[in-house]
Each structure stands twice: as C-alpha cells, then as structure tokens.
C-alpha cells in the first residue's frame, strides 16, 4: 500500500517536472558514475569514474547534480534537495556543505549534529548510513548565466 502511494506521488511530481521545464529559468540535471579502482601491472591503483554499465552491491557511485541559471534574472534562496535512492548508502559529498535528513526529509541538520533514537530510549550520533536526504542551501544569489555542480557519493547496498 505504501508503495502504491509512493508511485502515485512520483507520477504526480514527474508530470509536474515536465511542465515546469519549459518555463523554468534554471536547469537542473542529474548524472551518476561508478567509481572503479584499476590496479596497474606495477601495483599502482588508479581510481576512474565510468558510466555505469555494470553495478553490483558494494560498488561506489558518484552522483553529479548540475545547475545553471539560464534566465536573465537572478535567483535567490537557491536550495537543491536530493532524496537518496533507497538502495544507496550515503558516502559523503565533495564540498561538505550539505545538510542532511535521517528521517525522510522531516528534520534537517549537519550530520554531526543529528542523533538517532535507540530502542532503549537513548540516542546515538547519526551515521552516514542513516541519511535519507541531502540538501544544499546555496546562500549566494544565482546570477544570470551562473552555474555549478554538486557531487555526492554513495555505495550500492
């Protein structure tokens, strides 16, 4: 039942997105790569990012969210939110400027400030594996033509 509701909500949001694209002054794109460690014949290890042709549990993923102001005016209070796919465990961002939610997007904060309630009533510090949503709150106005990208990493559960 929960799944059905989620599907309906997703359908609604996707429909809304397709309508919004035509009129939006900002472009937002999402991409994903797989991080592979390649060991050379001399034992040196090189980390490369490749398009995800093959992904199995334990693989490291790199998500890249790009934004660009394609309008002639400045946008303010620019906030990017990325719900973590359920099959992915959060493994940090490149800039460390994000705030996160560990409860499905209800409450937000820096990961180090969040605590998880345990069964015995005590709390423990939140871990990366607890993260359900990531959010960047860009405090500076996004002027016309400005662009950037936000990067976070995850591991396939």
């Amino acid at each position: 039942m929960k799944l059905i509701i989620r599907i309906m909500m997703a359908f609604a949001t996707l429909t809304g997105a397709s309508l919004a694209v035509a009129a939006t002054p900002l472009q937002l794109s999402s991409d994903v790569f797989v991080e592979r460690t390649i060991e050379g014949v001399d034992g040196t290890k090189t980390v490369v990012l490749e398009k995800p042709k093959m992904v199995t549990p334990g693989d490291s993923l790199v998500f890249v969210v790009k934004y660009k102001n394609v309008s002639a005016t400045t946008a303010t209070n620019f906030v990017v939110t990325n719900p973590l796919p359920p099959a992915v465990a959060f493994n940090g961002t490149s800039d460390g400027q994000e705030i996160v939610s560990i409860d499905g997007g209800k409450n937000w904060g820096f990961l180090g400030d969040l605590r998880v309630a345990k069964e015995d009533g005590a709390t423990r510090a939140a871990q990366r594996s607890d993260v359900t949503h990531i959010k960047w709150n860009l405090n500076q106005p996004l002027t016309a033509g400005a662009e950037g990208k936000l990067i976070f990493r995850g591991v396939v559960k």
Partner: peptide
Amino acid sequence: IQNVASATFDTAAGPVTIQSN
C-alpha cells in the same frame, strides 16, 4: 536505482520548484 534532484529558488515572480532528469 533512480536519482532525482529538485531545487527551489525565489524569483521576482515568486518561489519556483524544479526537478532534474
């Protein structure tokens, strides 16, 4: 595994929400 980002911002016309691919 599907990933979608969303963004909100304010313009002169008011708050806007957009979705990534």
